Amino acid sequence: MAAMSDVLLRVGRLNYVWTNTESLLIYIIAHLLKIQKDAAIVVFLTLNTTRARIDLVERLAKLHSTPAADRKAVLHAMSRMKKESKMRNKYNHCIYSFDDKGQISGTQLMRFVEDDKEISYGKVEQLDEKEIAALEKSIAEIVSISQSLWSFINASSHVSGEL
């Protein structure tokens, strides 16, 4: 079991680093489409889900006109983002279970699991030391992804002049 303030602090950090990292896709979109940042912002904001934004960036990276080195760097970063989006989605789309002292004891995912005969929802997981460590690891990985995206952006001559 974890103290509520510790969990909420980590979930807040997770959201903060995720949002900052996802916003870097604006510069990646500008680079891949060879457009100005303001046009890339319009594209970014028009796509209203993380998944749609990542899909767009991956598809643009796979175009024949994208240099191989850019393709490799962008696809690697998007693969890492997709992996970490699972942790972000978990903590943004769950409800919390509490113990008798009011401390968070677990999470319950708000997602259906269906087969031919029945429906269930809400995979329950304990919020123990191991899960807290996984949350911290995910935050660190998202920060690392952000750093790699900044390195790519700074190396890109098209976008770097607009930072």
Rank of each mutant, 00 (worst) to 15 (best):
V124R: 15
T107D: 08
D38G: 07
L47N: 00
I119S: 07
E131C: 09
I119H: 04
R51K: 05
E162D: 13
I104K: 07
L32A: 03
I28L: 15
A68E: 00
A73N: 11
W150Y: 14
I119C: 08
M1Q: 11
R111V: 03
D6F: 12
L24A: 06
T49I: 07
S151W: 06
N154H: 15
L60H: 05
W18S: 02
Q103N: 10
S85W: 02
H158V: 05
A3R: 12
C94L: 02
S148Y: 02
L9P: 01
E162Q: 13
L14N: 05
T21A: 08
K83C: 02
Y121K: 12
A133K: 11
L25I: 06
V143R: 10
S148N: 08
Q103S: 06
M110T: 08
N48T: 05
G102M: 05
H158D: 11
G12C: 06
Y27K: 06
L63Q: 10
D55V: 09
K37L: 14
C94S: 06
K137T: 15
V17R: 01
I139R: 05
F44W: 08
I28V: 15
V17Y: 05
A61S: 07
D115G: 03
F152A: 03
L60I: 10
D70H: 09
Y27V: 06
G161D: 08
K117M: 14
I26V: 11
L25W: 04
H93A: 04
Y27S: 08
T50G: 03
L127M: 15
L135W: 03
G106C: 00
R53Q: 01
I35R: 06
G161K: 15
G106P: 02
E125Q: 13
I142N: 03
Y27R: 01
I95E: 10
A155S: 15
E114H: 12
P67D: 08
A140C: 09
T66A: 09
L33P: 04
A40M: 03
E136T: 07
I95R: 10
S85T: 04
W18Y: 08
F44P: 04
Y121E: 14
M78P: 04
D100V: 12
F152C: 04
S148C: 06
E84P: 00
E129H: 09
D70L: 03
G106E: 01
